[in-house]
């Protein structure tokens, strides 16, 4: 094992996340390599300092008492039985419905329609949150590349559907990389573009995305706009001005399916 590999594995070994065989290989290297040993010692010193000097705050008695009081005061299972009893019945109705309609499409559509606005609002908040979190992180990108042929394979195996990756450098929107982020419970690919000083996130939405009236949503100076990219529903989040955003959306919309 060389030093490069060992230093990559070092935090994993230190945190007990390495399998046994690799650990043994790593230990063999560390025995012979003072630099890696020092790095390991430094990590351990930091951990000891944190554990001994950064206090672990114990929950105050008042909080414990509050939780216990709330637990006692919550609606009893009897009061909730109406909702609970409804569930098996709903499940049965749902399965009957499923039996009568071809596939599950009708049910899915019904569920979507019934809560579409709530789902969309939640998803919109998720998308803004992801964008802000990425901006706040050291790097908003997991794979840094201006080459679409590098970015696309990187997603393979990490997310269910590989996104259509296009570079729009000629048009002023340069592809600078990609990352994986969460929207609701789904891991989604995110393509990151740069336009001037603006960072543009393009989220490939799961399951074709949610229905929308198509108008952009604004939040704290950032704008979210939905579009289609090569047959996939996407959401664009950026702080670009409206005209630049519209131009970018039209660019995405004009891409045809396939790669």
């Amino acid at each position: 094992m060389d030093c490069k590999t060992a230093s990559d594995l070092l935090p994993l070994y230190f945190d007990g996340e390495l399998d046994r065989a690799t650990s043994r290989g790593f230990e063999a290297h560390v025995d012979a390599c003072p630099a890696c040993r020092d790095a390991l010692v430094a990590l351990d010193a930091l951990r000891q300092a944190l554990r001994h000097e950064a206090p672990r705050f114990d929950a105050p008695g008042a909080l414990r008492a509050r939780v216990i009081a709330s637990a006692a005061g919550m609606p009893t299972p009897e009061a909730r039985q109406f909702r609970v009893a409804l569930r098996p019945w709903m499940a049965m109705a749902a399965s009957l419905l499923l039996a009568f309609v071809a596939g599950g499409a009708a049910l899915a559509a019904w569920q979507r329609a019934s809560s579409a606005s709530a789902v969309e609002a939640q998803q919109t908040r998720d998308l803004f949150a992801s964008h802000w979190r990425a901006l706040a992180a050291t790097s908003p990108i997991d794979v840094v590349s201006t080459d679409q042929h590098t970015v696309k394979p990187w997603f393979a195996g990490k997310v269910a559907t590989a996104p259509v990756v296009r570079d729009f450098k000629a048009e002023g929107y340069a592809l600078i990389g990609g990352r994986i982020d969460y929207v609701g419970n789904d891991r989604v690919p995110v393509l990151v573009y740069q336009h001037g000083k603006h960072l543009v996130d393009v989220f490939i939405l799961p399951g074709g995305g949610v229905a929308s009236d198509g108008s952009p949503v604004q939040m704290q100076g950032y704008v979210l706009e939905r579009a289609m990219l090569g047959g996939q529903a996407v959401a664009i989040v950026s702080d670009m001005d409206r005209a630049e955003l519209t131009r970018f959306r039209d660019l995405l919309d004009s891409q045809v399916q396939g790669d």
């Binding site: 672990r56 114990d58 929950a59 909080l63 414990r64 939780v67 216990i68 637990a71 919550m74």
Partner: peptide
């Protein structure tokens, strides 16, 4: 519910920390 109550109290220190 019992599981959640128990869980919350057991991990109350971690949660508070």
């Amino acid at each position: 519910r019992a599981v959640v109550d128990e869980l919350a109290l057991r991990h109350l220190d971690a949660a508070y920390n």
